[in-house]
Simulated scan of single mutants.
Amino acid sequence: MDSLCFHSVLLLLVSTASCLSFSHPSFLGVHPLDAQYYSSEFIKCKDGSKSFSRDRLNDDFCDCSDGTDEPGTSACSAGKFYCRNLGSKPQFIVSSHVNDRFCDCCDGSDEYDGTIRCPNTCVMGGNAENMYGNYNSKVRDQSVFSEKETENGAKAEESAHSLSGLKLAIILQVVVVAFLVFLWSFRCYTRYRRRRSR
């Protein structure tokens, strides 16, 4: 039983570290199993065609024909964006759906440029595509945001608000995981103390 507690705590700590590592913007759209692949200073395109430096990861310029260097942007037509969708089902979407003014990921991570605001519906188990797709198309049809508003800074404000919302979501996820680690550790400790006192 102690071994089970230890392994559970270890798993929760790794999850916390994973949340923290993905708070870095260049890891946007990267599958957790690929995090190690993208961690070196020079990264090779998965098709083996060439290498690129880490600062060119998600720089919105396609260096690799297979999209290896742009997992978080729509720069490469062959790219795939990974939606973490914590609280729901993770998924890949084609890179052309990134920042296309349509919420494809239930966590809203595919629309990070601030053009639209995608609420995180993952915790509810829903999918933003189904719930908010009609609303987004109505907004486009009615031209609620005129070009003049966008030019006058509305886009910049929305982008800043979206980014702060994403940071808040990551911080909340880390806090929840840390709290769960604490509770599980405390539970394991009290079980251990009870057994020792017998």
Rank of each mutant, 00 (worst) to 15 (best):
F179R: 00
L11E: 13
I171M: 07
L172D: 10
S143L: 13
C62P: 00
E70P: 02
E41A: 09
C62V: 05
L28F: 09
A78P: 00
T121I: 01
S109F: 13
C103P: 03
P32Q: 10
E41P: 05
C5M: 15
R56D: 07
R187Q: 14
L10S: 12
S23W: 03
S51A: 06
N120V: 01
N127M: 04
F92H: 09
F27H: 09
E41I: 08
S8C: 13
S159F: 11
P71T: 08
T190R: 14
P119G: 09
D66H: 02
M131C: 05
S162G: 07
Y82I: 03
R187D: 04
L183G: 03
S51E: 11
R194G: 10
E157A: 12
W184V: 12
V94G: 12
G48Q: 08
F42K: 10
S77M: 04
G67I: 00
S143Y: 11
C62S: 05
R191W: 11
E149A: 13
M124I: 04
S88L: 02
V177C: 10
S185A: 15
A75E: 04
F61S: 06
C122K: 08
V94S: 12
R101V: 08
M131N: 07
Y192V: 00
A17I: 07
D69V: 01
L13M: 11
R193G: 03
K50G: 00
T68Y: 01
G165N: 09
G108V: 03
S39E: 15
E149F: 12
Y189E: 05
V174N: 02
V144D: 02
L57Y: 03
R117M: 09
C122D: 07
G125T: 07
E149K: 14
F145D: 02
G48K: 06
I93E: 04
R84F: 10
T150A: 13
F145P: 00
V94Y: 10
R198L: 10
D141W: 13
K44S: 05
S18C: 13
N130F: 11
L172S: 14
S53L: 06
V144M: 07
Y112C: 07
T150R: 14
T68I: 01
S143Q: 14
A78G: 01
S143H: 14
F182K: 00
V174H: 02
S74F: 06
N127W: 05
R194N: 12
T150N: 07
G133H: 00
E129R: 10
R191K: 09
P71Y: 04
D69E: 01
H7A: 11
Q91E: 11
T190Q: 13
S21P: 05
E151R: 15
R187W: 15
C76T: 00
G87H: 03
G72W: 04
K44M: 07
R187A: 10
S95G: 14
S96W: 09
Y82R: 00
S88M: 03
F186L: 09
N152R: 15
F179Q: 01
C106F: 06
L33Y: 05
F182S: 01
R117C: 13
F42E: 12
T150Q: 12
P71I: 02
Q173W: 13
Y189G: 02
Y112F: 15
G79V: 03
L180C: 14
G114P: 08
G72E: 09
C76D: 05
